[in-house]
Nucleic acid binder design. Sequence first.
DNA 1: CAATTGACGCCCA
DNA 2: TTGGGCGCCAATT
Length: 121
Amino acid sequence: MSSTMAEISPRYQQVYELVRQIPPGQVATYGQIAELLGWHGQARQVGYALFRVDPDSDIPWHRVINAQGKISQTPQRQGSDALQRLLLMQEAIMFDAQDTIDLRRYRWQPVLRHAPPQESP
DNA sequence: CAATTGACGCCCA
DNA sequence: TTGGGCGCCAATT
């Protein structure tokens, strides 16, 4: 074991911590995670970070999908995309005929602390 | 130490 | 609508 696992704050660690906050039944896009971290336009870095995650990890990596509402995978992780789809369906997330998730419906919307939700206009 | 390796998203033809 | 190019950056080998 690499004893000290606390002091280092690798960039990827920020991704993992934020992804852990996505509640079951909701999803976020790579770009959304990047924006929330203040990494404008760096969605790809989020993808890189999640690629390193073990499917066994306690990180809910499956709750991150691409901006089109689809599961993003690579031939190398084949089967992992099937797993991701399964995990999402187990959280009651539905896919349409094009294997797309309705982001309007399932997108994670973190609570903004200083902007109280407005009542209906 | 240098090269390789990747789960994105946006723009333009 | 679809496909191709480009920027982004760090963990691994």
